[in-house]
Nucleic acid binder design. Sequence first.
DNA 1: TCAAAGTATACACTATACTATATACTTGTA
DNA 2: TACAAGTATATAGTATAGTGTATACTTTGA
Lengths: 120, 120
Amino acid sequence: MLINELSKRTGVAIPTLRYYENFGLFKGVSDETVTTNNYKDYDESIVEKIEMIKGAKEGGFTLSEIKKLLDSWYDKNLSNEKKTQVVLNKISEIDCKIQELKKVKKLLTECIVTIEKGGC
Amino acid sequence: MLINELSKRTGVAIPTLRYYENFGLFKGVSDETVTTNNYKDYDESIVEKIEMIKGAKEGGFTLSEIKKLLDSWYDKNLSNEKKTQVVLNKISEIDCKIQELKKVKKLLTECIVTIEKGGC
DNA sequence: TCAAAGTATACACTATACTATATACTTGTA
DNA sequence: TACAAGTATATAGTATAGTGTATACTTTGA
């Protein structure tokens, strides 16, 4: 699909997609048989990748952190053990963030009790 | 406590604390009886507030979002019902972020299976 | 007492993640 | 075939969240 469709499918604005591509998060391919333009084609796997990027960003990961993960994922020179390790590390970072969020949630829940008591 | 101790207690750098205070996330008080300086004093509640800020930031909330929450929390003119509503909204945002992070985690877990199968 | 360390304020600078603008070329449609 | 809409690239500008530097004043300890 072309960038316009990719944007519609993911809900990410075209300039942002170009920024991401430029940042190295994914890469569209120009059809070599077409010589009149260099329009890039993005496949289904890129839609999935962007969904992952959106989720990770929502959870507070930076583009650099996301890139590092994707880079090792696609690194042919990395052993499966090392790839697994990188992914496991990211999973434990996610668990950490979830714990932090739960802590904040707990604080806010306590807040509500305080409000209802008329405190504050 | 003075800013130096606050920094040590929270692990947040002094310039960052000043930035937060300036942003309006909390406010130290100058002792009116001391005329020689305007050193600010920060109490325990501010330590807690900063822990909350750290957690919220880690989970991807912006300082503006955090400020909005704190502002309504300390708004004397807001009814308890409205305060509760603001806090409940924030809690559901947190749940949303947790769901997003779990989705990413699921994706990464699937990644590991794929790696182990020798795929990619 | 005086020098080092701490505090406050102001302003400049940086990094991240976009967003906008300009330009040039291509494609699809009336 | 003309022209609107789509695509690519480059560059500049913006917002957020700090970090660094300079200056001035205050406190504390040898």
